[in-house]
Amino acid sequence: MYKYILKRVLLSIIVLFGIILISFCITRVIPTDVAAKWAGPKATAEQVAAARVELGLDLPYHQQFFNYCGDLLHFDLGKSYITHRPVTTEIMNGLMATVELVILADLLGLIAGVFLGMYSAKHKNKFIDYICRFSSITFVSMPSFWLGLALQLIFFGILSLLPLGGRISTAFAVLHQLPDITGMLLLDSLLTGNFMLFADALKHLILPVIVVSIYPTGLVLRQTRSALLEILNEDYMTAAKSYGLKDRVVYWRYALKNCIGPTITAITYAFAYTLTNTCLVEAIFSWPGIGKYIANAVTNYDFPAIMGTTLFTALVYVIFNLVADIIAASDPRVRM
């Protein structure tokens, strides 16, 4: 087991190195002159040259790569073209807002997906199963930004039940001192006992969380269902029944443990998609997180910001994958 974990960690490090190499290549191979961008549109030739030296672009490539890696070790992802502030700082500003959204959405997707998947598998080929299968495919076919708009239209435009976007109402932000303990408003408001704030934050969260969680739900549902169906057909399931174990025991103890592996794979995929979808959804709901930061950076062609956040998200994803692999190793076959 330790050997397996060690092997996985080493592999992740190789992958990480590859990711850094690719992102380095992208930033250096691009057809635009980085120094000119940095210096701004009205800069003179001297200013551009000065910027080139300042950014270290006059050095040979391997030297540049070496510096790039060194910077990364100090969590230095460069400075934004637009604000000229460190990208790391800007990412950290939006981090907790995104974490709150992603965690809630993924949890919702995971729970709903697993539950519906099991339900669907248990009632295979019945009406309810068809509904579940159809919705799982529909869920992964929907553009999240469009779904966001549609929900805003219904719940804000027509029903006026939920706010249009943002994390809290403007009134709150102006009138109250916001707690800053973990950065997740929902949690902070509970910790400080501020239930008004909690209700307000929750109202703002509902729509974005639903929109982001749609994709994971569909993916996990589908995967759980097919994995479970495959397992239910295995000999050892029939064998367990033949030994007189009750159906309930067979279903819960034997089948579910066997489907951990495929479900975890689905979750890692789902997680990757939520990371991506947050860019679109946060932009729609003006959610002040990393996703909105990327969307803004894209509109402004702010390369260090784009690359920085891409690199950061890839890092998070690699770590997530590593953890998922280790959890999946509870299935002894994986460790072989």
Binding site: V15, G18, I19, L275, Y301, T310, N321
Partner: peptide, 24 residues
């Protein structure tokens, strides 16, 4: 296979966003 591993280690759309932003 290591190269595909690395490419697949990026969350799906992000790398595409980065590439196309840089290409224009």
């Amino acid at each position: 296979m290591r190269i595909t591993d690395i490419f697949m280690a990026f969350p799906p759309l992000l790398l595409t966003i980065a590439f196309s932003a840089l290409l224009g």
